[in-house]
Simulated scan of single mutants.
Amino acid sequence: MRPERPEQHHRNDQYDQHEDPFAERPRRSGRFRVAVAGGAALSLCLVGWLGWQALANSSSDRAGAAAPRSSAAFSEGDLLDPSPAAPGSVAPSGAGASAAAGSPSAAPSGSSSPGGRQLAGRTVLLDAGHNTGNGRHTSDIAKQVDIGNSRKECDTTGTSTDAGYSEADFTLDVVHRARQILRDRGATVVLTQDGDRAWGPCIDERARIGNEAKADAAVSVHGDGAPGSASGFHVIMPSRVVAGKADTSAIVDPSHRLGVLLRDGFKAATGEPYADYIGQQGLDTRGDLGGLNLSRVPKVFIECGNMRNSGDAKRMTDPQWRQQAAQGIADALTSYLTTS
């Protein structure tokens, strides 16, 4: 939003009306007429000086009121244009439309926060779920890895929309968008993969990357593959797991706080409803995900929508909506890191 122009105040200066010193008078002696003329001259000088002062003050007041605002009054977000919608894109609705229009929300809006680089010195891990190359490396991703309380596949191929838009493409695009917002706010952003690996990484390595980076917070981005009748998004938080390599005792509480902020921020930014098929009010807790079990830093997953549902799929394939999704994720992380 462009700042409003300052209101200009105009004054109507009122001048005192003085009696005319040269009006007709009874005749007086010469000495008296000289005295009167002298007094009249002094009066005229006084009136002229007062009028000049009033005009000067009036001009000063008007100039002060019309002075432009300093450039410091503009936030970074004022200078950014929203990304143009792709042909056939979905117009945001509900809470998402309000967020896009700059309406107040639970988290900062715009691709850069008004507070500037308030995340300087903080490290964030963004985990783009799956990999577009996983389908060509099925034997590699099928190997079992230890997640503490069980063993699971290294990774999976992920899901896709009915039209073939893959979860791996979706997650990497959203992560790239969120990374830019967070970098603009001063954060160091670490990715588990940047489309630069043939497959993977495995779920245990994804957790290890965040641990080794000593991330202050981590979010794993996904799209769900539930039955087509199901819709909505949900956030998955770690349950308390103490078994083998896993010990989530220290991260359960902060991860829960991050999860609630992410749920609220994502809904505010996108307008996406809570999942109607899993969890409660957009939140779920699990102890069977290696990326959470093995994490030593506060971490949550977000299933941004059900890619098998036609309505969710239409939104998730829209670049404008994906920008809103990234905004919700970045805003939630910003809220978490600036209040923890």
Rank of each mutant, 00 (worst) to 15 (best):
Q281R: 12
G282I: 13
G282K: 05
L283W: 08
D284C: 09
D284F: 14
T285H: 10
T285C: 05
T285W: 11
R286K: 15
R286C: 10
R286A: 15
G287I: 08
G287A: 15
D288A: 11
L289Q: 10
L289T: 06
G291M: 14
G291D: 08
L292R: 03
L292Y: 00
L292N: 05
L292A: 02
L292S: 00
L292M: 05
L294Y: 06
L294N: 01
L294F: 04
S295R: 13
S295K: 04
S295Y: 07
R296C: 04
R296H: 12
V297D: 11
V297P: 00
P298M: 01
P298W: 00
P298E: 00
K299Q: 12
K299S: 15
K299V: 12
V300C: 14
V300S: 07
F301C: 06
F301G: 02
F301H: 13
I302T: 13
I302N: 12
I302Q: 02
I302C: 06
E303K: 03
E303V: 06
C304I: 09
C304F: 05
G305A: 00
N306L: 04
M307T: 07
M307W: 09
M307E: 01
R308N: 14
N309Q: 02
S310T: 12
G311C: 02
G311D: 10
D312H: 07
D312F: 11
D312N: 09
A313L: 03
A313F: 01
K314Y: 08
K314E: 09
K314L: 11
K314P: 01
K314Q: 14
K314M: 06
M316C: 06
T317I: 07
D318E: 00
D318T: 01
P319I: 01
W321Q: 09
W321I: 06
W321L: 06
W321E: 13
Q323D: 14
Q324C: 04
A325I: 06
A325C: 11
A325P: 04
A325N: 05
A326Y: 06
A326G: 09
A326L: 09
Q327P: 07
G328L: 04
G328K: 10
